[in-house]
């Protein structure tokens, strides 16, 4: 079956959505992420949507669902790279994803997750070598 790949980055999971997903595929992603979080005890999920040309209410709801499920499993979710036109459209549609954290790019998303994990007391290392500091 067709699936969106989920990458493991230390304590985090990274999903890069590059295709126009049909609804079934979106639901499968939601299920896959849930099981991977528990399997690896992941502390954070990064969803990179910078290649997505639209986010409708269905995908919006999926993003919100992933964030709340992850929350229950003690992981933070960051949606990364939403395009301006997509953001403008979502706001007009009436969807502002209040429970979802966002970042401009993956690097900033990782920083956000690191800060969240650090403030919750745990320590971790991420094999992220391209940060200047």
């Amino acid at each position: 079956m067709e699936r969106i790949p989920i990458l493991r980055m230390g304590q985090f999971l990274l999903v890069t959505i590059q295709v126009d997903m049909h609804d079934r595929l979106a639901l499968t992603l939601q299920e896959d992420l849930t099981s991977r979080i528990t399997e690896h005890g992941s502390r954070g999920v990064l969803i990179d949507i910078s290649s997505l040309e639209i986010v409708d209410s269905f995908i919006g709801r999926m993003l919100a669902n992933i964030a709340s499920i992850a929350r229950v499993l003690d992981a933070d979710t960051v949606v990364v790279g939403m395009q301006p036109a997509v953001a403008i459209t979502l706001v007009e549609l009436g969807l502002s994803l209040p429970g979802v954290r966002t970042a401009l790019n993956v690097e900033k998303g990782v920083a956000l997750l690191n800060a969240a994990v650090a403030s919750s007391g745990a320590m971790l290392e991420v094999d992220d070598a391209d940060g200047e500091d």
Binding site: V79, A87, T102, A103, L104
Partner: peptide
């Protein structure tokens, strides 16, 4: 207000 919300969705 919509602009502020859209910027937040983008991560700014």
């Amino acid at each position: 207000i919509k602009t502020v919300t859209a910027a937040r969705l983008m991560g700014a």
